[in-house]
Design a protein around this nucleic acid. Structure first.
Lengths: 278, 278
DNA sequence: ACGCTAGGTA
DNA sequence: TACCTAGCGT
């Protein structure tokens, strides 16, 4: 048996909302430690992996490990109909392996809404699970920044709305984009002092300068998630996808792994985007 | 001669917009008391009946009773072109029994738009006019709820998007639906105290438990109409169609009578819907 | 019939 | 400000 309770508007709900931009179904693994989810966006550019430790919930119980494919979009649709103060329960029984039940209960117990959500096959989502501990050493640069700062960057970059280049060297991290209507460049001087300022970007480690290009649209979801947290941690590597991480309740995390653009893809996408652009 | 005036965005306009989902032409009866309309949806599942008392309009005059078949869809199309503050006049003369004239007049009198709308034969719409006063005693349960609550229910149920079962007993009213991707159940504990809470469902009267199944899509129009009012009143009966009512300006009303699904119909409709779903 | 654009609601 | 729904055009 598996059961977790949380209140309306909890971090999990917020995170699920935010990943909707990329993902419709995801594979969820529950263990006594907590709740983890892996998903690949529909275009296979972003892999996202998140772990909510049991402490992140109001109550949490998982008798034995289980793996479930969940139609996140439907789940979020339903969660959206919760009201302030509602207790949200997600439950899976051992008798019924076909569904999970989500219950929204008003504080005064007067109104109850429940959905039995049919599980789906999402095994394709877990082909390769990157283990951050193994990968970390491949990252040439890792830095943290206030998530507010990150979001503002994303917003400014969206004025141009094209592929974004992230470059980093020992002193400066910069985000830039070029498009038909102009170009934007945002640079942060790294703060490497012992007493970092509140709003500064902290370089955790760097080995040589590097720069990566990625499609801006995949950052939108990260930016949305980051709103729920104080800091984001960004890892850059020439061998690995860009990593964006937010820390959840000490032990938990949500990590986006965004494949850098290959040159050809860059051009293709630009074309496609022109059309999309009103 | 018949003539009524109202301002753009009046309740009548809102109601006409909302019933468009179900009805293209309707039969309108005008008397000195007010303006009433009967219509049957194209699939003959919903009968709707509304009465706007003369006080509901900015001005109202009806010298003798008359009955007119109106192409509501065309009428609404034209009304949509009205601007803020416009005065809308609907007029029928004794000389011309073929048309009604609708005039939109800007507040500054600078612009006037008028349409002569050809009347149509809508006598088939009035085959049987249920009189609520005669029917009310057949209803085993009647309850009121805030229309906002009603709309939220409709929305949550739409996650599954299939036929809806409404069940009621002395304590609880529940809405539920089952579909391929799961099922949803919403329960409200009735409030029968003298001091009802703002958001609560009030049971007016109940005789024994009962439950009805109906096609969700017919509720959409009710939900849309209900937005114009604070409360909806719902009547359930095993002998009669489900009734949904909103009260207009004290003496007026709009009532939906929705035939419950027969078993076969339920199955037919489900098939049709499967296709529609992505 | 599908995709896109606009408006309303959360 | 963003999401979802509804209407219009291709």
């Amino acid at each position: 048996m598996f059961e977790l309770k949380m209140v309306k508007g909890s971090t999990l709900q917020g995170v699920l909302e935010a990943i909707l931009d990329l993902v419709n179904v995801a594979n969820v693994d529950c263990s006594s430690e907590g709740f983890s989810l892996q998903a690949l966006d529909t275009e296979h550019v972003v892999f996202l992996s998140l772990f909510f430790p049991s402490e992140a919930f109001q109550s949490y119980r998982c008798d034995e490990d289980r793996s479930m494919g969940i139609a996140i979009a439907d789940m979020v649709d339903f969660l959206r109909s919760s009201n302030d103060g509602d207790i949200i329960t997600i439950k899976a029984t051992d008798q019924n392996l076909e569904d999970i039940t989500i219950t929204l209960e008003s504080p005064d117990k007067i109104k109850t809404m429940a959905i039995d959500l049919r599980l789906v096959d999402a095994t394709s989502q877990c082909l390769k699970i990157p283990d951050w501990n193994d990968m970390e050493s491949d990252y040439q640069a890792i830095f943290c920044m206030p998530s507010e700062e990150f979001r503002l960057n994303c917003k400014s970059l969206s004025v141009i709305d094209d592929d974004v280049v992230i470059s980093v060297n020992e002193e400066v991290i910069s985000f830039s984009t070029k498009g038909e209507s102009g170009c934007v460049n945002i640079s942060h001087v790294m703060n490497k002092t012992d007493k970092p300022e509140k709003a500064s970007v902290i370089l955790t480690h760097a080995r040589g300068p590097l720069s990566l290009t990625l499609n801006w649209r995949y950052m939108k979801s990260c930016a949305k998630v980051s709103k729920l947290f104080d800091q984001v941690k960004i890892g850059l590597s020439t061998k690995r996808p860009l990593m964006v991480e937010c820390i959840i309740a000490e032990k938990g995390y949500i990590r986006y792994f965004v494949a850098p653009l290959k040159e050809e893809e860059g051009r293709q996408r630009k074309k496609a985007k022109k059309k999309r652009r009103r």
